[in-house]
Design a binder for these strands. Sequence first.
DNA 1: AACGATACGGAGCGCTGTTCCGCTTTGTCA
DNA 2: TGACAAAGCGGAACAGCGCTCCGTATCGTT
Lengths: 184, 184
Amino acid sequence: MPPRKRADAVRNEQTLLAAAAEVFVRSGVDAPIREIAAEAGVGMGTIYRHFPTRADLVVAVYRHQVEACASAGPSLLSTSDSPFSALRAWIDLFVDFLVTKHGLAGAMQSDSSGFEALHGYFLDRLGPVCESLLRAAAEAGEIRGDVRPYELMRGIGNLCIGRDDDERYDPRRLISLLLDGLRL
Amino acid sequence: MPPRKRADAVRNEQTLLAAAAEVFVRSGVDAPIREIAAEAGVGMGTIYRHFPTRADLVVAVYRHQVEACASAGPSLLSTSDSPFSALRAWIDLFVDFLVTKHGLAGAMQSDSSGFEALHGYFLDRLGPVCESLLRAAAEAGEIRGDVRPYELMRGIGNLCIGRDDDERYDPRRLISLLLDGLRL
DNA sequence: AACGATACGGAGCGCTGTTCCGCTTTGTCA
DNA sequence: TGACAAAGCGGAACAGCGCTCCGTATCGTT
């Protein structure tokens, strides 16, 4: 059994994950390594040591984001004014996450089976979270009750497909409209 | 009406189209501009003047290749030993062309409607050519007669999906096997 | 032949990924 | 606690790329 990782290395790994997620949203998954290093306040060597290839980093961020998104659901539900505003806030996190998810396919150019596995993980983990938010809002009488989590998540995912550099298309606007459409 | 283009400019444009096609097959659509310039024996400035963006170049090569592939059909048919060997040779050209075609989607990241248009052009132009090769081989009794051009072209196209840097997968080998399977 | 107009070539700039190694921090053991 | 490998870190340095720009060469016209 190899000796445990050093505490600073563990810290840096977490910092990097958070910084990379932030930068991916701001500049896309192809953002320069330097920008991610700067955001995290570490050197480039540190990134390469933790994540030898860009795909490694993207996958790690992806998993990290799935977890963050999953655990954000219940906590938003308990801190928000209403179930519906929790849902809105959660969807907002979800959209940030989709940037990473869509970049994933490109980053994992080979290995499509690995991609499928990650996609399954994503559905298993986030589907129930979305469902509980939906149910809470429905039981509070804020939205209609016949919306299924899969269709909502997929619909939002599809709305977010397409290049970010298109001034004429803002997915978040449409998603907001969609959410309004759920109200009773 | 603006004065005609200079003769050397026209020549260079043709040279570039041929050189780019060659390089795309060898190194992919992301090949360095320098490599294409070197292959064509021109300076980089010349490429940028004729094709301001990479997408412009890829699209131009694409159209050029569609035409070349379309006109190669009949001529192969008349110079080959048999219709079947003409078909084999044509498929070989077709596979080269697919490198450009698959790169097209990536190069035209925005503008998916433009991509659809180009795809339609591709089908209209190459479908009949493939059909005539198929029919000739069938009428010569070399292959079965129930193969439709669309399914063959699409099948071959799909076989060619996936990264080129995978040592374990050689699309041309499989395509050769597929072609053998058409024989009577 | 002479002279704009047009096109060409490639050096140069800025940005990127990736490596490599001297320096710092950490954990351990006497 | 102090000292000393081992593990980890930072960022200078190198290499490769896209793209621009302008002095030079070629073309077509008069």
